[in-house]
Nucleic acid binder design. Structure first.
Lengths: 176, 176
DNA sequence: TCTTGACCTTCCCATCGTGGGAACCTTTAG
DNA sequence: CTAAAGGTTCCCACGATGGGAAGGTCAAGA
């Protein structure tokens, strides 16, 4: 079947299928004489696996590891569990961060009259947030929340014969 | 003071200060004779406002609206509250999505022995997730979680004299 | 005075996963 | 035979941020 049909059957868009192929997450599809990609039901199965993993929030690099284990019938479930646990920890961390934001914001919203008057605790807080907690905190600029946190953990030193580096295409140095 | 000092004093990196200026979130800084950007304590105040709003998860477009209200001393607090409420709704939605992921994943993790055997409910679920809920669901490919959801809500039709479009540099629409 | 190092400037690139769209080729239905 | 639908590659954009190169500026110490 062609890419459009595979997309419909798997829930992964044609664009993303090409992208996954390009980055090496999935093997290169075979081609028809005219150059169209051709997919088997087995390929669709794999795409659905990927789709589901994305729905659970796994990053593509993590999915790459999961796919390796999926294909390896002599895998140890401990390895799978380890990845899943690392991922859920990340999810919970993000949840915590968002909840901290939401909690603070809710307090401010509750304190805002929301009428025609200009006075607003929301703006007041943005303008001059109180020191985070307890007394004696005199370094207001240091308490970073690290909201968009720690995304640099790419190099997972995995090594199941990592596909083709899993890095998006070229980077043609302009030879300026 | 120069950009490095302003960065230190506000908690916003020099890179981001230049970016905010470029996108029109903040007005263009005055320059010294030699071309260095020059900041007043008032500018730093504004940068701290931005920093705090980012810490609460507000997107730059939302901060743009908040800044407009902040500067407008005859604002209505209702307008501020509206923005904050819209934002908290978004936060809670993201939290819900993440919690759904984490919940599902936790169940799978709990069911995984995590030993040397290959059998693993995590992989099994990725491979063939059960129908979302109740019986009779025969359209397994349709239940999108919409994880990276609805990000297209840019056009907020705000109109407090939006700075310089707030879009990062060029966009040269090919005049189609 | 000269040097050095720290800082500034602009400009480009990368991230991550996804979509939009142009330009062009192939398949299929009418 | 033609037109539409859908395939192909290639480039661009998003959002917010960081890295870094090439070159100018400033301040402190020899």
């Amino acid at each position: 079947m062609n890419i459009g049909e595979a997309a419909k059957a798997s829930g992964v868009s044609a664009k993303m299928i090409r992208y996954y192929e390009e980055t090496g997450l999935i093997p290169k599809a075979t081609r028809t004489e005219s150059g169209y990609r051709d997919y088997t039901p087995s390929d669709v199965h794999m795409l659905r696996f990927i789709r589901r993993a994305r729905d659970l929030g796994f990053a593509v690099t993590e999915i790459n590891e999961l796919l390796g284990l999926w294909r390896d019938t002599s895998r140890r479930s401990a390895d799978v569990k380890k990845i899943a646990k690392a991922h859920i920890a990340e999810l919970r961390q993000r949840i915590d961060e968002l909840e901290e934001m939401a909690g603070t914001l809710q307090v401010l919203i509750d304190g805002c009259s929301g009428d025609d008057r200009p006075d607003c605790p929301i703006l007041a807080n943005l303008q001059a947030p109180p020191s985070p907690k307890s007394a004696g905190n005199s370094t207001p600029g240091k308490g970073k929340l690290n909201r968009h946190a720690e995304r640099g953990a790419q190099q997972s030193a995995c090594c199941h014969a990592t596909p083709s580096t899993l890095k998006p295409r070229a980077k043609r140095k302009p030879a300026k």
